[in-house]
């Protein structure tokens, strides 16, 4: 190490020490103020999480989350395992409702309307969002039927509409060229990466307002991961995408905004460039540089 870098080392140590202190405070249950960057305020929020708390039985999993999700952008949720990224994501389309013991306070707005309002039909809510899960989960039916499933359950029977949606979605998911000759073969015969892109195709088939992706690449090999990332690049601007990831590089490469969560709290949220290069908080820096987590 060159001598000239010594002051830098000193800074790093400083950051680490202060980060460790703050993280310990959070672990001890101290309330934290989310560091919300200003550039977010210039965006229109399609989903707005406001003071959201969530309990699994007696255990609180999310604490006072305030998080506007900008329209047409890719937002990455990062943080160590168990920090509540997936829970937050699954709260947005209320798929967490399926868990019997979940209790929430606070609110999540979709285009300014609460998704928890009593008159809201959760089925309609989910129809406005697509979701991609960690593990590829195609249905045990043909590729074609997988893609048009959201349309089928909406009662669409017109063959032309279905064919069009199928091709559009598969092209959108960069899978069309690989499967166009075997649309009516079982989806179970595709590779893991292809299956995951098929799931993305299914998620965008009904043209949702928001696309939620829960660690979509964690079960995939690097080549398949690369393809998914390219695909997200293609979807950028068209869809509002929220992606949970463990992979810092992926978050840095693909997202416009990054939110750092820790122990159920949203610590810092801002544009990806800022979060990865000059985060406002030492603990964020510590995490994105791989010093813990």
């Amino acid at each position: 190490m060159a001598l000239s870098e010594l002051p830098k080392l000193d800074t790093t140590l400083d950051v680490s020490v202060s980060a460790a202190g703050r993280l310990a405070a959070i672990a001890a249950g101290e309330a934290v103020q989310t560091e919300l960057h200003d550039d977010l305020r210039r965006e229109t929020a399609v989903v707005d999480v406001r003071g959201f708390n969530l309990w699994y039985g007696p255990k609180q999993a999310l604490f006072e989350i305030h998080m506007p999700i900008p329209k047409g952008r890719i937002t990455a949720l990062v943080g160590p395992s168990g920090c509540g990224k997936s829970t937050l994501l699954r709260s947005i389309n209320r798929i967490n409702d399926l868990v019997d013991t979940v209790r929430t306070t606070g609110d999540i707005l979709l285009n300014g309307e609460s998704i928890f309002a009593p008159h809201v039909d959760v089925i309609d809510l989910r129809k406005r969002m697509g979701m991609v899960f960690q593990k590829p989960n195609p249905f045990p039916m043909s590729v074609y039927e997988n893609v048009v499933y959201p349309l089928r359950i909406d009662g669409v029977r017109d063959r032309a509409v279905l064919d069009e949606a199928c091709e559009r979605s598969l092209r959108g998911a960069a899978l069309w060229d690989e499967v166009k000759d075997r649309l009516h073969d079982s989806a179970m015969g595709l590779s893991g990466g292809q299956q995951q892109r098929l799931c993305i195709a299914r998620a965008i088939a009904a043209e949702p307002e928001v696309l939620l992706m829960d660690e979509p690449c964690s079960a995939l090999d690097p080549i398949a991961t690369n393809k998914i990332e390219e695909l997200m690049e293609g979807l950028r601007g068209e869809y509002t995408i929220v992606i949970v990831t463990h992979n810092m590089q992926q978050a840095a490469r693909t997202s416009d905004y990054t939110a750092f969560m820790y122990l159920g709290r949203l610590i810092e949220y801002g544009s990806t460039a800022t979060i990865f290069q000059q985060p406002h908080l030492p603990e964020t820096l510590a995490y994105v540089t791989g010093r813990f987590g």
């Binding site: 389309n93 798929i95 399926l98 089925i123 309609d124 989910r126 129809k127 406005r128 969002m129 697509g130 979701m131 899960f133 593990k135 989960n137 195609p138 249905f139 045990p140 039916m141 499933y149 959201p150 089928r152 359950i153 909406d154 799931c199 299914r202 998620a203 009904a206 939620l212």
Partner: peptide, 27 residues
């Protein structure tokens, strides 16, 4: 029947009945 199939169908906006009849029963 794996829960992830049910989740996929529900997340796609299927009702419980649609999920049961179209996904769970065939599987």
């Amino acid at each position: 029947v794996p829960e992830h199939l049910r989740s996929a169908s529900l997340a796609a906006g299927g009702t419980n009945w649609q999920t049961a009849v179209r996904i769970v029963v065939p599987a």
